[in-house]
Amino acid sequence: MGDFKTRRHIFKAKDLQKEGNAFSLIGSSGKVLGMALKSCEKSTKPIYVSVGHRISLDTALRLTHSCCKYRVPEPIRQADIRSREYIRKNVNVS
């Protein structure tokens, strides 16, 4: 997703006012590469959603938004919390 136009993206990100608002990320070729999504009301930065194996962009966007209680989707948030806890308890820092 590295070839979309950055300035236009920054301008559009400011237009994401309400939770669930999204806009397409369009590459220089004109192809839709993904979507930027305002995942929750308090979020000031969008998250980026793209297609996956056997899932459409629309479905990926809806599924991602349904998993967002906070900015980061809950499965990723929980994995981060648990991995940090494991490291804190089990990895010796010298």
Score class of each variant (00 low, 15 high):
Asn92Ala: 11
Ser28Pro: 00
Ile87Lys: 11
Asp15Phe: 04
Val51Glu: 14
Ser83Val: 06
Leu57Glu: 03
Ser29Met: 00
Leu33Arg: 01
Lys38Asn: 06
Ile76Phe: 14
Phe11Pro: 00
Ile87Tyr: 02
Glu19Arg: 15
Lys42Gln: 13
Arg71Glu: 11
Arg82Gln: 12
Ile87Gly: 00
Cys67Glu: 10
Leu57Asp: 03
Glu19Thr: 13
Ser66Asn: 13
Thr59Tyr: 02
Asn92Pro: 05
Ser43Cys: 14
Gly30Val: 05
Arg8Cys: 05
Arg62Pro: 01
Leu16Cys: 07
Gly34Ser: 06
Asn21Ala: 10
Val91Cys: 11
Tyr86Thr: 03
Val49Lys: 02
Ile26Ala: 03
Phe11Arg: 15
Ser94Phe: 11
Asp15Gly: 13
Asn21Leu: 00
Lys18Cys: 10
Gln17Glu: 12
Lys18Pro: 01
Ser39Glu: 07
Ser29Leu: 02
Gln78Ser: 12
Gly20Ile: 06
Lys18Arg: 14
Lys12Asp: 10
Gly20Tyr: 05
Cys40Met: 06
Ser43Tyr: 03
His53Trp: 08
Ser29Phe: 03
Ala79Gln: 11
Arg7Ser: 10
Asn90Lys: 05
Arg7Gly: 09
Phe11His: 09
Ser66Phe: 08
Gln17Ser: 10
Lys18Tyr: 11
Arg71Pro: 00
Ser83Ile: 06
Arg8Glu: 15
Ile26Val: 15
Ile47Ala: 01
Ser56Glu: 13
Gly2Val: 11
Ser83Met: 07
Arg71Gly: 05
Arg84Met: 07
Ser83Ala: 10
Val93Ser: 08
Thr44Arg: 12
Ile26Asn: 04
Tyr70Leu: 15
Arg7Thr: 01
Ile26His: 04
Tyr48His: 14
